[in-house]
Computed example of a mutant assay.
Amino acid sequence: MFEITVISVLMMCLGTTAYATITSSSFKVVSDVRLSDYTNNVLNVVKNVYSHITCSSQCETDCYSFSYNKKTKECKTYNRELCTGDSDQQSSNTLVFVKTRSNDVSVVTYFTSSTGMTRGKAKQYCDDHGGHLLVLDSNAKWKHFSSHQAYQDLTLSVGEYWISMTFDDSVVECDAKAKDEPWRYTGWGRWASENREPNRCSYQYCVKLSNSRMRSTECISILKAICKSGCIDSTIN
Rank of each mutant, 00 (worst) to 15 (best):
C55G: 10
L35W: 03
I53P: 01
K70G: 07
L35Q: 06
D37T: 09
N40A: 13
N41T: 10
N48L: 03
S67D: 09
C59M: 02
R80P: 01
V45A: 10
Y50F: 12
C83L: 10
T72N: 03
E74A: 11
Q58W: 04
T54Y: 07
T72K: 08
F66M: 03
N69D: 10
S67E: 02
E74R: 13
L43N: 07
H52G: 01
V29Y: 14
Y38S: 08
C59T: 00
N48S: 04
N41I: 01
V45H: 05
V30T: 09
D62Q: 14
T54C: 06
S67Q: 04
C63M: 01
S67N: 02
S36T: 14
H52D: 06
T61Q: 15
V29I: 15
S31Q: 14
C83P: 03
C75R: 09
N40R: 14
D62V: 12
E81S: 12
C83V: 04
T54N: 06
N48M: 04
Y64C: 01
K70H: 12
E81H: 11
E60F: 12
Y68F: 10
T72D: 09
S56C: 07
S51M: 02
E60H: 12
N79W: 07
K70N: 11
T72W: 07
S36K: 15
V45K: 11
D32Q: 14
S56A: 12
D62T: 13
R80E: 11
N40D: 15
Y78D: 08
I53K: 13
L35Y: 02
S56L: 02
V46Q: 00
Q58N: 08
K76Q: 15
C83G: 09
S67L: 08
R34A: 11
E60T: 13
V46K: 05
K73C: 10
